[in-house]
Measured scan of single mutants.
Amino acid sequence: KKRTSIEVSVKGALESHFLKCPKPSAQEITSLADSLQLEKEVVRVWFCNRRQKEKR
């Protein structure tokens, strides 16, 4: 599967949402994915990776 490159504006939106809620529910992920026109899986993986980055 190809890597999904996420645009800067979209990254900003994800980042601000992450600061409010680092662990969104499935429903939040779905609505966020719909509003940003991304697949749910892409958003879910982005949050997983972002939480891991926070640990480092």
Rank of each mutant, 00 (worst) to 15 (best):
K1Y: 05
K1C: 12
K1T: 07
K1H: 04
K1N: 12
K1L: 04
K2T: 07
K2W: 07
K2Y: 11
K2F: 08
K2P: 04
K2L: 07
K2R: 08
R3I: 14
R3V: 14
R3K: 14
R3A: 08
R3F: 12
R3T: 12
R3Q: 08
T4V: 10
T4E: 15
T4C: 06
T4G: 08
T4N: 12
T4M: 12
T4K: 06
T4D: 13
T4R: 05
S5N: 13
S5M: 12
S5V: 15
S5L: 12
S5T: 15
S5C: 13
I6W: 06
I6R: 10
I6Q: 07
I6C: 08
I6V: 09
I6H: 07
E7T: 15
E7C: 13
E7G: 14
E7F: 06
E7W: 07
V8G: 14
V8P: 15
V8N: 15
S9N: 08
S9T: 14
S9R: 15
S9P: 11
S9D: 15
S9G: 14
S9Q: 15
V10K: 13
V10N: 06
V10R: 06
V10I: 12
K11H: 13
G12R: 11
A13F: 12
A13P: 04
A13W: 05
A13E: 11
A13K: 14
L14R: 02
L14T: 00
L14V: 03
L14P: 02
L14I: 03
L14G: 01
L14A: 00
L14M: 04
E15C: 03
E15L: 03
E15I: 03
S16Y: 05
S16G: 07
S16K: 15
S16H: 07
S16W: 05
S16M: 11
H17Y: 15
H17Q: 06
H17S: 14
H17M: 11
H17F: 15
H17T: 10
F18Y: 10
F18R: 01
F18K: 01
F18G: 00
F18S: 02
F18M: 00
L19K: 08
L19N: 10
K20P: 00
K20Q: 04
K20L: 06
K20F: 08
K20M: 06
C21P: 00
C21A: 06
C21G: 04
C21R: 05
C21Y: 04
C21M: 05
P22C: 07
P22W: 03
P22Y: 03
P22I: 03
K23N: 15
K23E: 14
K23C: 13
K23L: 08
K23Y: 06
P24T: 00
P24A: 02
P24D: 00
P24C: 03
P24S: 00
S25H: 04
S25G: 08
S25W: 02
A26R: 09
Q27F: 06
Q27E: 08
Q27G: 09
E28F: 04
E28M: 04
E28L: 05
E28S: 04
E28V: 08
E28Y: 03
E28N: 04
I29W: 02
I29V: 08
I29T: 03
I29R: 01
T30N: 15
T30M: 10
T30R: 09
T30H: 07
T30I: 07
T30G: 10
T30P: 01
S31Q: 14
S31R: 14
S31M: 13
S31V: 12
L32Q: 02
L32M: 10
L32V: 06
L32F: 05
A33H: 02
A33C: 05
A33S: 07
A33P: 02
A33R: 01
A33M: 03
A33D: 03
D34L: 15
D34S: 11
D34G: 10
S35V: 09
S35I: 11
S35T: 13
S35E: 13
S35C: 09
S35W: 10
S35A: 10
L36W: 04
L36R: 01
L36D: 02
L36P: 03
L36M: 04
Q37L: 07
Q37D: 08
Q37I: 03
Q37T: 06
Q37K: 11
Q37M: 09
L38Q: 04
L38N: 00
E39L: 02
E39I: 00
K40F: 12
K40E: 14
K40W: 08
K40I: 07
K40Q: 14
E41I: 01
E41W: 04
E41A: 07
E41H: 08
V42F: 11
V42Q: 09
V42G: 04
V42C: 12
V42I: 08
V42A: 10
V43R: 00
V43W: 02
R44C: 04
R44K: 10
R44E: 13
R44L: 05
R44G: 08
V45A: 14
V45I: 13
V45M: 10
V45C: 06
V45D: 14
V45L: 12
W46F: 05
W46M: 01
W46C: 02
W46T: 00
W46R: 02
F47T: 00
F47W: 04
C48F: 14
C48E: 15
C48T: 10
N49G: 07
N49D: 15
N49P: 02
N49I: 07
N49M: 08
R50K: 08
R50L: 00
R50V: 00
R50Y: 02
R51A: 09
R51S: 06
R51M: 08
R51H: 10
R51Q: 08
Q52V: 09
Q52M: 11
Q52L: 09
Q52E: 15
K53A: 03
K53H: 08
K53R: 04
K53D: 07
K53M: 15
K53T: 13
E54L: 06
E54P: 02
E54A: 07
E54G: 04
E54V: 04
E54S: 04
E54M: 05
E54N: 05
K55I: 12
K55L: 10
R56P: 03
R56I: 04
R56G: 13
R56V: 12
